[in-house]
């Protein structure tokens, strides 16, 4: 299950990361948002209603796409480039 469908860069260098512990592969040039949404359907869940969220504006304006990284840091997924070995947590189990 995924939200995004690649129409370019699908042969670019693979970049490994984990999504809620599940090994996944993104491509060179991906933002975290792209990497997560080509593997799953949400980047976080709302702290109020638990509803899944997957970003909205993709330009760093709505702040709906913050994810948690393994070191406890938080990153805005749509404006952060994917790097090898990142451990991304959505807290939604949406990668299944």
């Amino acid at each position: 299950m995924q939200l995004f469908h690649r129409i370019a860069r699908s042969e670019h260098r693979p970049i490994s990361f984990t999504l809620d512990g599940t090994p996944c592969v993104g491509r060179e040039g991906d933002t975290l948002l792209t990497a997560v949404l080509t593997a799953g359907t949400a980047v976080r869940s709302s702290e109020f209603s638990d509803a899944p969220r997957a970003g909205f504006c993709q330009m760093g304006a709505c702040q709906d796409c913050w994810v948690t990284l393994a070191n406890g840091e938080r990153a805005r997924a749509c404006t952060t480039p994917l790097a090898a070995g990142m451990e991304i947590f959505t807290g939604t189990g949406a990668a299944a």
Binding site: I7, A8, F56, C57, Q58
Partner: peptide, 17 residues
């Protein structure tokens, strides 16, 4: 997504929403 967001996915990430 917003219209602009849908466009950014396509234009800069080569992805359809």
């Amino acid at each position: 997504f917003t219209l602009g967001g849908a466009q950014i996915a396509l234009k800069t990430q080569g992805c359809a929403i």
